[in-house]
Design a protein around this nucleic acid. Sequence first.
DNA 1: TTTAAATCCTAGTAAATCTATAGAATTAAT
DNA 2: ATTAATTCTATAGATTTACTAGGATTTAAA
Lengths: 137, 137
Amino acid sequence: MLSHKAKYALKALLYLAEQDENHISRTVEIADGANIPKKFLEQILLDLKRGRFVSSKQGKFGGYYLIKSKNDITLAEIHRLFDGAIALLPCASLNFYEPCSDCKTEDECSLRHGLMLIRDKTLKAMEGITIASLVKK
Amino acid sequence: MLSHKAKYALKALLYLAEQDENHISRTVEIADGANIPKKFLEQILLDLKRGRFVSSKQGKFGGYYLIKSKNDITLAEIHRLFDGAIALLPCASLNFYEPCSDCKTEDECSLRHGLMLIRDKTLKAMEGITIASLVKK
DNA sequence: TTTAAATCCTAGTAAATCTATAGAATTAAT
DNA sequence: ATTAATTCTATAGATTTACTAGGATTTAAA
């Protein structure tokens, strides 16, 4: 399941993607438009900025805007930024790999192989969902 | 990501599936064999019993054994039993459906449609992983 | 140069959830 | 009866989640 943070991030990106080119959106505007608690959204937008999905203009008349094409922002990326690994166990993860502490011998984790199959399919599906694909309905 | 509970459940089922027909496994035996904390495993086995994956014999010489074919126990079922919904949001879930509280109008959740596509693919993949498929490697 | 309006930053907090552990009750075989 | 197992209930401690608070910083207009 997605965390609220990840869900809000997607909705915020969706909101930004729906605005006119060159429009700058204030946090409060996004919060109202997408029904997200404002102070919580502030943090999320900062995370999205650090992740180079959006950029911001500070000070009066400042706000946020997309710097990555809505066709190139995938669900997989947002999941990784806010909720971490897509794989079901760390030992089956590409980007968040960690060995299992409870598996006897390192590469004989009985679950690993099967979970890597799942990971590949889920990842492929998640990379197919972009902000653009969500916005046009 | 899977919880430890779900991971331990899979490993316990795997252990049971590897035993001879008619063999009854004590909790401590499974715990040692699959490297799972014994008291924690007790709870997990009770959950698996309530889910009708295993059954038990009480008292001396008692223990646990599979009552569902290892070909019919899927990752999807274990995920649902221990970690709940497979979908990324409750509004996109088949078995754990709940409407989003933060979506303006009920069926205009901007994320729902895309997440249902993911759910279908992930579910299909997870139904393809059985205890039997994990045991034979 | 002051002021207003925005982002940015660091904490903190209440609630829930997760990962176990403890101990007693129950059941069955010897 | 005794022993050895499951079963049940409660709870502790740690972590995570979902926010909230308050202020510092930045920018632009008046």
